[in-house]
Amino acid sequence: MTGLAYLIPVALFLGLLGLAAFLWALRSGQYDDLDGAAHRILFDDEDRPDG
């Protein structure tokens, strides 16, 4: 039963990590243009960062 003491926190931590990553992606506008994202992957000249 001592395994529970660290396995549960580890599982919860990993889950929270995924949740935080998703919320961050949502906040930074990565879900605003799903149609565009599907096409952008095919552009071959976008290897420099924006700006």
């Binding site: 605003d32 243009d33 799903l34 149609d35 565009g36 599907a38 096409h39 952008r40 095919l42 552009f43 000249d45 924006d50 700006g51």
Partner: peptide, 28 residues
């Protein structure tokens, strides 16, 4: 209409050094 349009518009704007952001949202 399509991804090509997105690329053409952004391609026409981004090479200018004074442009800091040019992004087309295809959904809207």
């Amino acid at each position: 209409h399509c991804g090509k349009c997105v690329q053409a518009i952004e391609g026409a704007l981004r090479p200018r050094p004074d442009v800091t952001e040019a992004r087309v949202n295809m959904t809207t």
